[in-house]
Design a protein around this nucleic acid. Structure first.
Lengths: 167, 167
DNA sequence: GCACGGTCATTCGTGTGCAAATGATCCACC
DNA sequence: GGTGGATCATTTGCACACGAATGACCGTGC
């Protein structure tokens, strides 16, 4: 059971539909606060489900979503500093540090000195890293498909567009 | 800068558009693998952005998204065991354990023994917990609005529906 | 040449998120 | 009434995620 589908049912929170602290437009009974319908709750659930699918499908390659993304971006970049890689992959410096370290530990990525800027070390994919990424991309396509499986073609395009807009 | 909007631009990964490991339909040049357009990447980004908005807006109440959700669900439930609360809030037992402990530590929730089942402890919201939740829900409405701010009304409804379907 | 503001990488602390293992307890079936 | 499978809560170990602080270094401007 990779994706535990919890069967919660929405319950009105009438507790909070009192006149004092609720903004005007929430006097509408449909404005009752239902946690399960909030964007944040749904995003957390969807992200969890995707992570579960990812780890299962990518198990053979032993890559997490962030590790995979970072590896792909290192390959695309050729040479890239760690902070820049973080910006490319939407990870802050504290996070990319650990991700990069694990990739380096596994010899999927190597570090090189930048004689132009002694603060940085440049990351470069190794041959093993490129080979692993080539295999992992096949799994990654399947992961995206499995993640979007509950939606039809139009809905997949819609969701992708909406999430991009949410940026 | 609560929401670091990294300006990455999609780059084709022609590296992987070789005939060997790419499935048939990916011979289409549009099938090139672009990490930034994958559902997983977009979900991670959207979830990060929401979490950032949440923590900033909820700072006065010092509640994380999971703590807030758990508190609301304890209030709605009246009495609830920890594992059941986990199912209601989409958190596994190991995760809900820490969330519940932090709520109990802050006296927002209290534990009670269940004479019917000595394995469990029942969680009940305290008066302080109910009062805090009442204030926090106001912030929570603003958080949902801010999260969905880049979208117009139709798009917000679409996104919510699509994420629910993804569930 | 040097002082200062900005950037790079790292570390620490806290909070999710989950697999796996554990011990206690429950319950259904025999 | 006992046994075996299920459930409850917890702990450990690992991996994100980020604020805050730190030390090294860069570049500009004086």
């Amino acid at each position: 059971m990779t994706v535990p589908l919890y069967g919660f049912r929405p319950v009105r929170l009438e507790l909070f539909v009192s006149q004092s602290e609720v903004p005007p437009q929430a006097a509408d009974p449909l404005g009752a606060y239902i946690v399960e319908n909030q964007a944040g709750f749904l995003l957390r659930r969807a992200h969890q489900r995707h992570a579960s699918i990812f780890l299962e499908t990518m198990a053979a390659h032993d890559l997490t979503p962030t590790q995979f993304t970072a590896l792909i971006k290192v390959i695309e970049s050729g040479r890239v500093t760690q902070n820049r890689l973080g910006r490319l992959t939407a990870m802050d410096p504290a996070t990319i540090q650990g991700v990069a370290r694990r990739l380096v530990d596994r010899d999927l990525v190597s570090r090189a000195l930048d004689p132009m800027d002694r603060r940085t070390t440049v990351l470069i994919a190794t041959d093993a890293g490129i080979a692993l990424a080539a295999r992992a991309v096949v799994a990654a396509r399947a992961i995206t498909a499995a993640t979007l499986a509950p939606l039809d073609d139009d809905e997949r395009i819609q969701l992708t567009a909406l999430l991009r807009k949410l940026g």
